[in-house]
Design a protein around this nucleic acid. Structure first.
Lengths: 233, 233
DNA sequence: TTAATTAAATGTATGATTTACACTTAAAAT
DNA sequence: ATTTTAAGTGTAAATCATACATTTAATTAA
């Protein structure tokens, strides 16, 4: 017995905004695919698809991302729902965007094989279909806000990382330089990093100490907040 | 020529979370209505309804809110989309919540006549249908974040208000006491309030100066940020 | 073996902001 | 003229943010 039968039904889609950090190039990139159905077949687009009858929105996002890119077990977070009537020229489609943060390299090879998925530098994106540009812009703005208030950045680095690498990441997200001494003072005073007994020696003779994000001490100190905002202006 | 015809369509709804501030009782309240269709007919619910074929999500939210409460021209802001399969026992419905802030009193009389809409104190809400409780909780959390970073509170006060009234509002949202001198120092130093040449004399013999929110100076000084977070532990 | 090179690591002084805290003032009512 | 009530005000101490330059550790080349 299903009610509401007099009401109009709609096509509902999800689109996945996957931000990847390239630790070597010190750049945030966006995962794009060549769309393989009409309209706009062959154009650059976010990984997207339609929500099925028997799956939740969250499940749809995970299924679609996996089927287009092979990525699974990401922390996909809902961002915003786009509902303009004519946003998709193919039909009236309501689309919810999801975003996630990952480290590039992870799955780079598999990606190339599948559906022409590619990492594109944020600073020089190609033209994207429909309102995908708007989706990305909103998600990036949200990321820049969130990272001030939650230590989400660590998902973008390997388990072990140096303070230099961590600072590079923050500079990539904020898109500006940060003073090295102030950065270290602040991040270390939060007591959420654990210094390891091991050095990274690839990039310098002296070597840089590895650190690890300590989730327990983060949870312990969380009440004090995580307000991370250096060198604003 | 419409594409995507092989894909499943869904019922899509919007639900409106309207927070009202009662300046006399110094309390945040929530606008609820008695639902007038099955299932859960007669139960307390948010103002909600289905998105039509020919309207955007935003338009649907405004139409539905108006039809159920008579409220129009609110600044409705999209909050989150709820997509669990079984969230509505009547059928599979995907619902986007919208929220807004208004001052109570405004339209109180009209409301009573229409659909049994009522303001209910946040601190003692009745049981709400489906996942509406979850929607409210999320929207309130978002409000508490936003108000630290944007001067949204002024939508909850009359054009002219006293500093005491403004402080009462912040205390109602934060749910704690704020030091009077520090509050005034901080809010005045932002240069977004304009002191008027007139006193409010209802609540005290001495009277309290009226102020007005000055949107232009807010826009001017916005780059400096609006970080309003007093007395946090 | 010594010197040169490279990137990592470190500290301090100044100014700005936050916090804690209690008395005075204006106006009406008695 | 006195009492009552709520509005309005200031300061000192502590904390936090910022600007800024040298030293250190290790490898490589002479």
């Amino acid at each position: 017995m299903k009610l509401y039968s007099e009401h109009t039904k709609h096509l509902v889609a999800v689109d996945c905004i996957i931000f990847g950090y390239d630790i070597l190039e010190k750049e945030i990139k966006l995962l794009l695919i060549k769309r393989d159905f009409e309209p706009a077949k062959g154009k650059w687009s976010l990984a997207g698809g339609f929500v099925r009858k028997d799956e939740s929105l969250d499940d749809a996002a995970n299924r679609i991302l996996f089927s287009l890119t092979g990525l699974s077990d990401l922390y996909l977070e809902q961002s915003y729902t786009y509902g303009r009537i004519d946003r998709d020229p193919g039909a009236r489609v309501i689309s919810t965007s999801y975003s996630a943060l990952i480290k590039i390299k992870d799955l780079d090879r598999e990606l190339k094989e599948l559906h022409g998925a590619h990492w594109q530098s944020l600073s020089r994106l190609p033209h994207l279909i429909f309102d995908h540009q708007e989706m990305v812009k909103k998600a990036l703005g949200d990321l820049q806000m969130t990272i001030k208030v939650k230590p989400v950045g660590f998902a973008l680095l390997p388990e072990k990382f140096t303070l230099v690498q961590l600072q590079d990441l923050y500079e990539a997200i904020y898109q500006r330089k940060i003073d090295k001494r102030n950065f270290r003072k602040k991040i270390l005073s939060m007591n959420i990093l654990e210094k390891l007994d091991e050095k990274e020696k690839e990039t310098s003779k002296k070597g840089a100490w590895y650190y690890r994000f300590n989730r327990e001490s983060y949870e312990l100190h969380r009440k004090q907040g995580f307000y991370f905002n250096l060198d604003v202006n």
